[in-house]
Design a binder for these strands. Structure first.
Length: 287
DNA sequence: CGTACGACCTGCCCGC
DNA sequence: TGCGGGCAGGTCGTAC
């Protein structure tokens, strides 16, 4: 589910809901996700006011008033949902809205104003950690991240410099978070189609002109996905539990055997496996 | 160092 | 209807 646009959607949902709010109670339903939770996580979280919620790569960063930042990763299947506890009106009467705890609701954050944030992650590839805010950049999960694809530094020059001599495929190079971060399997496939680059090409052999098209395509695809509220396959939901709509715009991802969407192209989308992950592309439009 | 690959998990879908 | 196999948005550790 969660590549950069989905994480951005989560951040945009969380920011107005919890910034300035006091964390009153944290319910931790298991000892770990991908890794054990940090020591004394409950105590270190409770009593903080949320100063800010932001994104770095595919990580959600929650800055806290006592000087720590909570780092949250959604892995493959992580979700964040926001509820409002308390009395609500229905047509006939008032009722107390207390959502039941669902399967895989691993951590629940209750705020003083009755906002509830739920972290749900069936596959548990996600992670939660705490780190002194001033040392965030040194954190293991942050220190090897490349530049943000929506930043100004991300341009053709940057890709030329970083892909030079790389023997791996351009697809794998884009999935590697140490050059450009935040891209995942879906948006890499999509951006390569938009820029007409074969995913099989070696990163170091892609011409500058094509890398220029690639930077534009990456920007475009990410921005459009963010605008449509995050995409992803079957069932990405934003923090209000609503579906994103970008999946209707996929040109290649999960479209094996379907017609290429380039005007006048009569080719079918192919699926191959590269470094263990599915790649979807048009063998005619992408060279 | 760069690169390739298995491992970590659950759920779902497909074919038999 | 049940069961086994394969596959899924990501990333890390290990081996070469």
């Amino acid at each position: 589910m969660p590549e950069l646009p989905e994480v951005e959607t989560v951040v945009q949902g969380l920011l107005p809901a919890i910034s300035g709010r006091l964390i009153e109670n944290v319910i931790i339903n298991r000892p770990n996700l991908r890794w054990p939770f940090p020591l004394d996580m409950k105590e270190r979280l409770e009593g903080n006011v949320v100063l800010n919620v932001r994104r770095r790569s595919k990580y959600v960063l929650v800055d806290l008033s006592r000087g720590e930042t909570m780092i949250l990763h959604l892995g493959m299947s992580g979700r964040v949902l926001i509820h409002k506890l308390g009395y609500e009106k229905s047509e006939k009467n008032m009722y107390f809205n207390k959502p039941s705890v669902e399967k895989h609701d691993h951590v629940i954050f209750d705020f003083e104003d009755k906002t509830r944030v739920v972290y749900n992650d069936p596959r548990r590839f996600g992670a939660i950690d705490l780190c002194r805010s001033v040392e965030l950049n040194k954190h293991k999960m942050m220190s090897n991240l490349g530049i943000e694809p929506l930043s100004n530094q991300f341009n053709a020059d940057f890709l030329v410099d970083n892909f030079k001599y790389r023997k791996t495929s351009v697809k794998s190079a884009l999935l590697n978070q140490k050059y450009v971060c935040g891209l995942g399997n879906i948006y890499v496939c999509e951006a390569l189609w938009h820029s007409g680059i074969s995913p099989l090409k070696l990163a170091g052999s892609v011409k500058r002109k094509q890398l220029e098209l690639l930077t534009l395509a990456i920007r475009k695809v990410l921005k459009e996905a963010i605008e449509s509220g995050g995409s992803s396959l079957n069932d990405f939901k934003n923090t209000a539990g609503e579906l994103g709509y970008f999946q209707h715009n996929f040109k290649v991802y999960d479209r094996e055997g379907n017609n290429c969407k380039t005007k006048g192209c009569d080719s079918k989308i192919e699926k191959i496996v590269q470094s263990g992950r599915s790649t979807f592309f048009c063998n005619k439009c992408q060279r």
